[in-house]
Design a protein around this nucleic acid. Sequence first.
DNA 1: AAGCGTTATGCTATGGAAAACATAACGCTT
DNA 2: AAGCGTTATGTTTTCCATAGCATAACGCTT
Lengths: 113, 113
Amino acid sequence: MRYRLKGRVWIESDEGTFLGFGRVVLLERIRDHGSISAAARSMNMSYRHAWKLVDSMHRQSATPLVETTTGGKKGGGATLTKAGHNAIACFWQAYKHHKQYLSDQTAPLELLK
Amino acid sequence: MRYRLKGRVWIESDEGTFLGFGRVVLLERIRDHGSISAAARSMNMSYRHAWKLVDSMHRQSATPLVETTTGGKKGGGATLTKAGHNAIACFWQAYKHHKQYLSDQTAPLELLK
DNA sequence: AAGCGTTATGCTATGGAAAACATAACGCTT
DNA sequence: AAGCGTTATGTTTTCCATAGCATAACGCTT
């Protein structure tokens, strides 16, 4: 039987989860689609849930990651702030580094025979 | 706001999760209490669930980690095999190493300001 | 003024994982 | 032979995270 070391990483503050895989993908979708609702639709997530995630991130960040507008020609929308782009980059760096770590640490599992 | 890198690790086979934190604690409790049911009680877990976890581990291991007996003076019981003890040690090693990794990798999160 | 797509937010429904319950068999003890 | 605590396993119930629905407000367009 072949074993692999698997794992997850996320970034927490005292209030709970700040950034995780799903949250960061959501931020990317908001960046790419220009609205929370289009982002949610693109990943089969309810708008309600997507909004709550953004809200949760904002309650844990000194500066907002997403700026929203209501009304207007397109009904409104959302764009990422500098801090939003930074959060994406920062998480993916930790994520990729961790992925490599897991891969490297799979070898010692040979002890399980 | 202070951020920390958090994470989980577990060991998978092609069939799914083989060893994780809860499973290994369960193995330790079985070792310490001498039965699956006492182990489950000691950690507020239903016997049904504990048994399923042991069953899942066995379906993923060439050699069993737990040996059980039914009947007898104490009604039966369970003891760890050599492979069972080995699994515990192997997981904790990976777990502790990973814990150190997370701690080390928290510094770069300063980028989030 | 009416209509649209969006943000924002409360309330309800649902589905899957875990708990809880139920039963049978086992083999010592009394 | 009856009783006990255990393993083993099927069935039902509970709980909670997420989805889903419903509504209001916003500000362009027509």
